[in-house]
Nucleic acid binder design. Structure first.
Length: 424
RNA sequence: GGAGAGGUGGGUGAGUGGCUGAAACCAGCAGUUUGCUAAACUGCCGUACUCGUAAGGGUACCGGGGGUUCGAAUCCCCCCCUCUCCGCCA
């Protein structure tokens, strides 16, 4: 969440940033928020003053009681009681104001980095680069949802029976491909200096707030109501929350973690076109990379993550492009996001397989994730993460792009992981 | 799930109604001493909010939330968590 001092001192900048992010009524909301802040401080001052007087009277009462001056003490008691009553009223106001302020702050998205292009939707994203030739497929090339039936490697009907739509069962070579990809991605991450973690895939409310899924994405996550735990939509949540309420020793920075988890998304309201086959699921596997860096190093780290992810796509021999998301298409919490899209040839569509973002201090502020700078002051760190990678669309592209008359060729880099070279 | 014990500052741990924002020790930081290292000695050493140009004030916080009281780390109620034993179980 945004820092109150920034809102106070750089109001115009904040409003401009919010507008770039397509946030409605930015100026009015910020003004309302600052007004709340002003009132809160006013009430707090009044409250503290009353409380201070009551406290000092209480101390005197103690002394008087000891020295036996009962009557004087009784007189003070009456006054203190009155002060306390007034203070209590103010304290209630204060709590209300603080809650309102907190909620208002939670509602504000992160500010975009200066390099973020203006724009409203995916159309306005900036194509940073394209890599690889688009494959030329024969006339009778099939989309992956036909291929998986043909080779019996992913079964949606079965998933339907067991759970419901969007929960496929991977079978035979399809299941092995999943496992191979997960292992390949994790091994690559380790080689790149990430420490592997296996976090819980259910998280509590505090963790949801920590990384910004709550309150923004409430309703998009599955909730285990009995225990008030959310199924994670991404490993970003548990892995980043490892560092909630932590003051990291500077010498441990940057922190680089990677982990594989299933991810669960309700995708409420987003069913419709373009969701066939593996394109959009309620449950999918993903390897996530997370970095925590000093503020001055975070953009360098983002570039590093971007090229790392591109390296994976190159090794998988998939044509891809990199987008710099425009203000209107970026996630709530991000300051700068690169999306990586692979070309899935039979569908003739670019599919998002990764999203790498720098959150600057937005998450760190919620997480209270800090370090001590040279002068000993605690300061917020920067958090980043990226998918490396999300499996289903990678699978879709591999299947579609590499199909032949007698099977589907697997990328060479996966052969040792798969134990076969062709799906047939 | 049942029974018991417990949750205090970076750590250990004292503290059962007022002079305790919290002893002591350890760790940490600064300094003195010192061939070097070590030791010894001295000082500093929680967080958030808030007032103030600053120096420096104020308020809150001893797992969380309520309550009693002029005054709560300390008493009462509810909740959460940890540990031990029992039960169940991959």
């Amino acid at each position: 969440m945004l820092q109150l001092p920034v809102l106070r001192e750089q109001t115009d900048l904040v409003v401009a940033g919010l507008q770039k992010k397509n946030y409605k009524n930015a100026a009015a909301e910020v003004a309302a928020l600052l007004d709340l802040d002003q009132r809160r401080r006013q009430v707090q001052s009044e409250h503290d003053e009353l409380q201070a007087r009551a406290n000092s009277l209480s101390k005197e009462i103690g002394v008087l009681m000891k020295s036996g001056e009962r009557e004087k003490a009784e007189a003070f008691k009456a006054e203190t009681t009155q002060l306390k009553q007034q203070a209590k009223g103010l304290a209630e106001q204060l709590t209300t104001l603080e809650t309102e302020l907190q909620e208002a702050l939670y509602r504000l998205p992160n500010l975009p980095h200066e390099s973020v292009p203006a724009g409203r939707s995916a159309e306005d994203n900036e194509v940073v680069l394209e890599h690889g030739d688009l494959p030329l497929l024969p006339e009778d090339a099939q989309p992956h949802w036909e291929l998986i039936q043909k080779y019996d490697i992913v079964d949606f009907e079965l998933g339907n029976k067991i759970t419901g739509a969007g929960f496929p069962v991977y079978k035979r070579q399809g299941a092995r491909l999943q496992r191979a990809l997960i292992n390949f991605f994790l091994d690559e991450a380790i080689k790149a200096g990430y420490a592997e973690v296996q976090p819980p895939i259910l998280v509590n409310e505090a963790s949801g707030y920590g990384t910004g899924q709550l309150p923004d994405k409430d309703g998009q996550m599955y909730l285990a109501k009995e225990d008030n735990l959310y199924l994670i939509p991404t490993a970003e949540v548990p892995i980043t929350n490892i560092y909630r309420d932590v003051i990291v020793p500077v010498e441990q920075l940057p922190i680089k973690n990677a982990g594989h988890t299933p991810c669960f998304r309700r995708e409420a309201g987003s069913w419709g076109a373009d969701v066939r086959g593996l394109n959009r699921l309620h449950q999918f596997d993903k390897v996530e990379i997370v970095q925590i860096t000093l503020p001055e190093n975070s953009y360098e780290a983002l570039e590093e993550m971007s090229s790392y992810i591109q390296g994976l796509l190159q090794k998988l021999e998939l044509p891809y492009r990199v987008l710099r998301l425009c203000g209107g298409d970026m996630s709530f919490t991000s300051a700068l996001t690169y999306d990586m899209e692979v070309y899935s040839a039979a569908q003739g569509r670019w599919l998002e397989v990764s999203s790498a973002s720098n959150f600057e201090t937005y998450q760190a502020n919620r997480l209270k994730l800090r370090y001590k700078n040279e002068s000993g002051k605690t300061q917020l760190l920067h958090t980043l993460n990226g998918s490396a990678l999300a499996l289903p669309r990678i699978v879709a592209a591999i299947l579609e792009n590499n199909q032949t008359a007698d099977g589907i060729n697997m990328p060479k880099v996966l052969h040792p992981y798969l134990g076969f070279e062709k799906i047939s």
